[in-house]
Protein backbone atom coordinates (compact mmCIF):
# COMPACT_ATOMS: atom_id res chain seq x y z
CA UNK A 1 0.00 0.00 0.00
CA UNK A 2 1.31 3.44 -0.85
CA UNK A 3 1.56 6.33 1.54
CA UNK A 4 -1.15 8.18 -0.33
CA UNK A 5 -3.51 5.27 0.17
CA UNK A 6 -2.85 5.20 3.89
CA UNK A 7 -3.59 8.87 4.39
CA UNK A 8 -6.86 8.75 2.50
CA UNK A 9 -7.92 5.70 4.47
CA UNK A 10 -7.50 7.63 7.72
CA UNK A 11 -9.86 10.37 6.61
CA UNK A 12 -13.28 8.80 7.25
CA UNK A 13 -12.27 7.66 10.71
CA UNK A 14 -11.13 11.09 11.85
CA UNK A 15 -13.99 13.05 10.33
CA UNK A 16 -17.00 10.94 11.22
CA UNK A 17 -16.12 9.64 14.65
CA UNK A 18 -16.42 12.84 16.68
CA UNK A 19 -19.17 12.37 19.23
CA UNK A 20 -18.93 15.02 21.95
CA UNK A 21 -22.16 14.55 23.89
CA UNK A 22 -23.40 11.01 23.87
CA UNK A 23 -24.10 10.88 20.15
CA UNK A 24 -24.04 7.12 19.62
CA UNK A 25 -24.88 5.37 22.85
CA UNK A 26 -24.80 2.08 20.95
CA UNK A 27 -21.29 2.69 19.70
CA UNK A 28 -20.13 3.57 23.20
CA UNK A 29 -21.73 0.44 24.66
CA UNK A 30 -19.87 -1.70 22.13
CA UNK A 31 -16.58 -0.03 23.01
CA UNK A 32 -17.25 -0.50 26.72
CA UNK A 33 -18.17 -4.16 26.29
CA UNK A 34 -15.05 -4.80 24.24
CA UNK A 35 -12.96 -3.20 26.96
CA UNK A 36 -14.74 -5.30 29.58
CA UNK A 37 -13.97 -8.55 27.84
CA UNK A 38 -10.28 -7.74 27.55
CA UNK A 39 -9.82 -8.32 31.30
CA UNK A 40 -9.71 -12.02 32.11
CA UNK A 41 -10.45 -11.40 35.81
CA UNK A 42 -13.52 -9.49 34.78
CA UNK A 43 -14.68 -12.29 32.50
CA UNK A 44 -14.23 -15.03 35.12
CA UNK A 45 -15.89 -12.90 37.82
CA UNK A 46 -18.79 -11.98 35.58
CA UNK A 47 -19.37 -15.57 34.43
CA UNK A 48 -19.52 -16.75 38.05
CA UNK A 49 -21.73 -13.87 39.09
CA UNK A 50 -24.14 -14.26 36.18
CA UNK A 51 -24.35 -17.98 36.95
CA UNK A 52 -25.34 -17.33 40.57
CA UNK A 53 -27.81 -14.63 39.58
CA UNK A 54 -29.42 -16.97 37.05
CA UNK A 55 -29.64 -19.71 39.67
CA UNK A 56 -31.23 -17.22 42.05
CA UNK A 57 -33.87 -16.21 39.51
CA UNK A 58 -34.61 -19.45 37.67
CA UNK A 59 -33.45 -22.08 40.17
CA UNK A 60 -36.38 -22.10 42.62
CA UNK A 61 -38.76 -22.87 39.74
CA UNK A 62 -36.72 -25.86 38.57
CA UNK A 63 -36.22 -27.65 41.88
CA UNK A 64 -38.75 -29.18 44.21
CA UNK A 65 -39.80 -27.99 47.67
CA UNK A 66 -36.57 -27.61 49.65
CA UNK A 67 -38.34 -28.05 52.99
CA UNK A 68 -40.15 -31.29 52.17
CA UNK A 69 -38.94 -34.42 53.94
CA UNK A 70 -38.18 -36.63 50.99
CA UNK A 71 -35.40 -39.01 51.85
CA UNK A 72 -33.44 -40.87 54.50
CA UNK A 73 -31.68 -38.98 57.30
CA UNK A 74 -28.14 -37.70 56.64
CA UNK A 75 -27.64 -39.64 53.42
CA UNK A 76 -24.52 -38.86 51.42
CA UNK A 77 -24.53 -37.64 47.80
CA UNK A 78 -26.17 -40.06 45.40
CA UNK A 79 -27.80 -40.06 41.98
CA UNK A 80 -31.17 -39.29 43.57
CA UNK A 81 -29.95 -36.73 46.09
CA UNK A 82 -27.04 -34.95 44.38
CA UNK A 83 -25.82 -33.35 47.57
CA UNK A 84 -27.33 -35.79 50.02
CA UNK A 85 -29.96 -35.07 52.63
CA UNK A 86 -30.26 -33.29 55.95
CA UNK A 87 -30.97 -34.80 59.34
CA UNK A 88 -34.77 -34.63 58.86
CA UNK A 89 -34.28 -35.90 55.28
CA UNK A 90 -34.56 -32.75 53.12
CA UNK A 91 -32.85 -32.48 49.73
CA UNK A 92 -29.70 -30.37 50.27
CA UNK A 93 -29.29 -29.55 46.58
CA UNK A 94 -32.81 -28.07 46.52
CA UNK A 95 -31.97 -26.05 49.64
CA UNK A 96 -28.72 -24.81 48.15
CA UNK A 97 -30.44 -23.59 44.97
CA UNK A 98 -33.31 -22.04 46.88
CA UNK A 99 -30.94 -20.20 49.27
CA UNK A 100 -29.17 -18.36 46.46
CA UNK A 101 -31.80 -15.68 45.96
CA UNK A 102 -32.13 -14.85 49.66
CA UNK A 103 -28.39 -14.58 50.11
CA UNK A 104 -27.85 -12.41 47.03
CA UNK A 105 -30.84 -10.27 47.95
CA UNK A 106 -29.36 -9.44 51.32
CA UNK A 107 -25.99 -8.73 49.74
CA UNK A 108 -27.11 -6.46 46.93
CA UNK A 109 -29.85 -4.60 48.79
CA UNK A 110 -27.72 -3.94 51.87
CA UNK A 111 -24.76 -3.03 49.65
CA UNK A 112 -26.82 -0.64 47.54
CA UNK A 113 -28.38 1.01 50.58
CA UNK A 114 -25.06 1.44 52.36
CA UNK A 115 -23.47 2.83 49.18
CA UNK A 116 -26.31 5.30 48.72
CA UNK A 117 -26.00 6.55 52.29
CA UNK A 118 -22.22 6.85 52.06
CA UNK A 119 -22.43 8.72 48.73
CA UNK A 120 -25.04 11.18 49.97
CA UNK A 121 -23.30 11.85 53.27
CA UNK A 122 -19.71 11.69 52.02
CA UNK A 123 -19.96 13.57 48.73
CA UNK A 124 -22.79 15.85 49.84
CA UNK A 125 -21.00 16.91 53.00
CA UNK A 126 -17.64 17.21 51.30
CA UNK A 127 -18.97 19.40 48.52
CA UNK A 128 -21.25 21.63 50.57
CA UNK A 129 -18.69 22.17 53.32
CA UNK A 130 -19.16 24.35 56.39
CA UNK A 131 -21.38 23.32 59.28
CA UNK A 132 -23.28 20.73 57.26
CA UNK A 133 -20.03 18.95 56.51
CA UNK A 134 -18.85 19.17 60.13
CA UNK A 135 -22.11 17.66 61.41
CA UNK A 136 -22.20 14.87 58.84
CA UNK A 137 -18.54 14.03 59.48
CA UNK A 138 -19.20 13.93 63.22
CA UNK A 139 -22.19 11.66 62.62
CA UNK A 140 -20.18 9.23 60.47
CA UNK A 141 -17.36 9.19 63.00
CA UNK A 142 -19.82 8.29 65.74
CA UNK A 143 -21.24 5.46 63.63
CA UNK A 144 -17.71 4.40 62.78
CA UNK A 145 -16.54 3.89 66.35
CA UNK A 146 -19.59 1.81 67.28
CA UNK A 147 -18.40 -1.78 67.06
CA UNK A 148 -20.32 -3.18 64.12
CA UNK A 149 -20.94 -6.87 64.69
CA UNK A 150 -21.90 -6.68 68.39
CA UNK A 151 -24.38 -3.90 67.55
CA UNK A 152 -25.79 -5.94 64.69
CA UNK A 153 -26.16 -8.94 66.99
CA UNK A 154 -27.93 -6.89 69.66
CA UNK A 155 -30.28 -5.15 67.24
CA UNK A 156 -30.92 -8.25 65.16
CA UNK A 157 -31.84 -10.36 68.16
CA UNK A 158 -34.10 -7.57 69.41
CA UNK A 159 -36.02 -7.14 66.15
CA UNK A 160 -38.29 -10.08 65.52
CA UNK A 161 -39.41 -10.40 61.97
CA UNK A 162 -40.08 -13.18 59.53
CA UNK A 163 -38.37 -11.46 56.62
CA UNK A 164 -34.81 -10.52 55.73
CA UNK A 165 -35.61 -6.78 55.62
CA UNK A 166 -34.53 -5.94 59.19
CA UNK A 167 -31.24 -7.76 58.61
CA UNK A 168 -30.69 -5.81 55.39
CA UNK A 169 -31.43 -2.47 57.08
CA UNK A 170 -29.23 -3.22 60.06
CA UNK A 171 -26.28 -4.29 57.92
CA UNK A 172 -26.67 -1.25 55.66
CA UNK A 173 -26.89 1.31 58.43
CA UNK A 174 -23.91 0.02 60.37
CA UNK A 175 -21.50 -0.30 57.45
CA UNK A 176 -21.66 2.96 55.46
CA UNK A 177 -19.57 5.19 57.72
CA UNK A 178 -16.08 4.12 56.68
CA UNK A 179 -16.81 4.57 53.00
CA UNK A 180 -18.52 7.90 53.65
CA UNK A 181 -15.24 9.12 55.15
CA UNK A 182 -13.28 7.91 52.14
CA UNK A 183 -15.66 9.67 49.76
CA UNK A 184 -15.65 12.85 51.81
CA UNK A 185 -11.88 12.97 51.69
CA UNK A 186 -11.91 12.42 47.93
CA UNK A 187 -14.56 15.08 47.42
CA UNK A 188 -12.67 17.59 49.54
CA UNK A 189 -9.58 17.06 47.42
CA UNK A 190 -11.46 17.20 44.11
CA UNK A 191 -13.74 20.12 45.03
CA UNK A 192 -11.02 22.73 44.69
CA UNK A 193 -9.18 21.23 41.76
CA UNK A 194 -8.78 23.53 38.82
CA UNK A 195 -11.07 21.50 36.60
CA UNK A 196 -13.96 21.97 39.01
CA UNK A 197 -13.23 25.69 39.18
CA UNK A 198 -13.02 25.69 35.38
CA UNK A 199 -16.46 24.09 35.21
CA UNK A 200 -17.77 26.88 37.42
CA UNK A 201 -16.17 29.49 35.19
CA UNK A 202 -17.79 27.77 32.21
CA UNK A 203 -21.12 28.34 33.97
CA UNK A 204 -22.05 24.78 35.01
CA UNK A 205 -24.76 24.39 37.62
CA UNK A 206 -23.86 22.99 41.03
CA UNK A 207 -25.66 19.67 40.63
CA UNK A 208 -24.03 19.16 37.26
CA UNK A 209 -20.62 19.84 38.74
CA UNK A 210 -21.28 17.20 41.42
CA UNK A 211 -22.69 14.58 39.07
CA UNK A 212 -20.68 15.18 35.90
CA UNK A 213 -17.37 16.63 37.03
CA UNK A 214 -16.82 15.14 40.49
CA UNK A 215 -18.74 11.87 40.53
CA UNK A 216 -16.99 10.22 37.54
CA UNK A 217 -13.63 10.68 39.24
CA UNK A 218 -15.02 8.89 42.26
CA UNK A 219 -16.93 6.26 40.33
CA UNK A 220 -14.16 3.69 40.68
CA UNK A 221 -14.16 4.20 44.45
CA UNK A 222 -17.95 4.08 44.69
CA UNK A 223 -18.31 0.93 42.62
CA UNK A 224 -15.54 -0.82 44.47
CA UNK A 225 -17.12 0.27 47.77
CA UNK A 226 -20.42 -1.13 46.62
CA UNK A 227 -18.94 -4.48 45.65
CA UNK A 228 -17.01 -4.85 48.87
CA UNK A 229 -20.14 -3.83 50.77
CA UNK A 230 -22.05 -6.62 49.01
CA UNK A 231 -19.40 -9.13 50.06
CA UNK A 232 -19.45 -7.74 53.58
CA UNK A 233 -23.26 -7.95 53.74
CA UNK A 234 -23.31 -11.57 52.54
CA UNK A 235 -20.66 -12.54 55.07
CA UNK A 236 -22.39 -10.65 57.88
CA UNK A 237 -25.75 -12.22 57.10
CA UNK A 238 -24.09 -15.64 57.08
CA UNK A 239 -22.41 -14.89 60.39
CA UNK A 240 -25.68 -13.75 61.96
CA UNK A 241 -27.56 -16.72 60.59
CA UNK A 242 -24.86 -19.11 61.75
CA UNK A 243 -25.21 -17.64 65.22
CA UNK A 244 -28.95 -18.16 64.93
CA UNK A 245 -29.81 -14.45 64.89
CA UNK A 246 -32.27 -12.78 62.56
CA UNK A 247 -34.82 -14.35 60.29
CA UNK A 248 -34.27 -18.11 60.12
CA UNK A 249 -37.42 -18.97 58.22
CA UNK A 250 -36.07 -17.74 54.85
CA UNK A 251 -33.48 -20.05 53.38
CA UNK A 252 -30.00 -18.59 52.98
CA UNK A 253 -26.61 -20.25 52.89
CA UNK A 254 -25.94 -18.92 56.37
CA UNK A 255 -29.16 -20.44 57.66
CA UNK A 256 -28.20 -23.78 56.10
CA UNK A 257 -24.88 -23.63 57.94
CA UNK A 258 -26.72 -22.83 61.17
CA UNK A 259 -29.02 -25.83 60.85
CA UNK A 260 -26.13 -28.06 59.83
CA UNK A 261 -24.20 -26.95 62.90
CA UNK A 262 -27.18 -27.50 65.19
CA UNK A 263 -27.73 -30.97 63.80
CA UNK A 264 -24.07 -31.82 64.35
CA UNK A 265 -23.22 -32.25 60.69
CA UNK A 266 -19.71 -30.93 61.40
CA UNK A 267 -18.95 -33.43 64.15
CA UNK A 268 -20.53 -36.37 62.36
CA UNK A 269 -18.58 -35.69 59.16
CA UNK A 270 -21.60 -34.92 56.93
CA UNK A 271 -19.47 -32.71 54.70
CA UNK A 272 -22.13 -32.63 51.94
CA UNK A 273 -24.26 -30.52 54.24
CA UNK A 274 -21.90 -27.72 55.25
CA UNK A 275 -19.27 -27.60 52.48
CA UNK A 276 -21.60 -26.60 49.57
CA UNK A 277 -23.14 -23.52 51.25
CA UNK A 278 -19.70 -22.45 52.53
CA UNK A 279 -18.22 -22.91 49.08
CA UNK A 280 -21.03 -20.91 47.49
CA UNK A 281 -20.41 -18.01 49.88
CA UNK A 282 -16.71 -18.13 49.04
CA UNK A 283 -17.38 -18.33 45.28
CA UNK A 284 -19.77 -15.37 45.25
CA UNK A 285 -17.22 -13.38 47.25
CA UNK A 286 -14.48 -14.33 44.80
CA UNK A 287 -16.64 -13.48 41.81
CA UNK A 288 -17.42 -10.04 43.22
CA UNK A 289 -13.79 -9.37 44.07
CA UNK A 290 -12.72 -10.35 40.53
CA UNK A 291 -15.35 -8.06 39.03
CA UNK A 292 -14.02 -5.33 41.29
CA UNK A 293 -10.45 -5.71 40.06
CA UNK A 294 -11.66 -5.83 36.47
CA UNK A 295 -13.76 -2.69 36.91
CA UNK A 296 -10.81 -0.86 38.38
CA UNK A 297 -8.90 -1.47 35.16
CA UNK A 298 -11.78 0.03 33.19
CA UNK A 299 -12.98 2.88 35.41
CA UNK A 300 -9.63 4.29 36.43
CA UNK A 301 -9.22 7.09 33.89
CA UNK A 302 -5.45 6.82 34.09
CA UNK A 303 -5.54 3.25 32.88
CA UNK A 304 -7.70 4.27 29.93
CA UNK A 305 -6.06 4.41 26.52
CA UNK A 306 -7.26 5.88 23.27
CA UNK A 307 -7.19 3.24 20.56
CA UNK A 308 -6.84 4.53 17.04
CA UNK A 309 -9.75 3.39 14.89
CA UNK A 310 -8.92 0.27 12.94
CA UNK A 311 -8.30 0.83 9.26
CA UNK A 312 -10.71 -1.27 7.24
CA UNK A 313 -9.32 -3.00 4.24
Amino acid sequence: MTAVGASTLLEPGSAGALRPTGGGVGHRAIVATRRLLRSSRMVIGLVLLVFFVLVAIVGPHLVGNPNAFVGPSMAGPSARFWLGTTMPGQNIFYQLVDSTSGTLEVGFLAGALATLVSVVIGIGGGFVGGYVDELLALFSNVILIIPGLPLIIVVASYVKSSSLLPTILIIAFTSWAGYARVLRGQTLSIRNRDYVLAARVAGEKTWRIIFVEILPSELAVIVSNFIFMVIFAILTQSTLAFLGIGDLSTLTWGNMLNVANNDEALTSGAWWWFVPPGLCIALVGTALALVNFGLDEILNPRLRVYKAPKVRR
Partner: peptide, 8 residues
Protein backbone atom coordinates in the same frame (compact mmCIF):
# COMPACT_ATOMS: atom_id res chain seq x y z
CA UNK B 1 -5.11 20.10 36.73
CA UNK B 2 -7.57 22.20 34.79
CA UNK B 3 -8.90 19.42 32.56
CA UNK B 4 -11.08 16.70 34.08
CA UNK B 5 -9.32 13.33 33.63
CA UNK B 6 -12.70 11.61 33.38
CA UNK B 7 -13.87 13.46 30.27
CA UNK B 8 -12.78 13.73 26.67
Amino acid sequence: ASLNPAHT
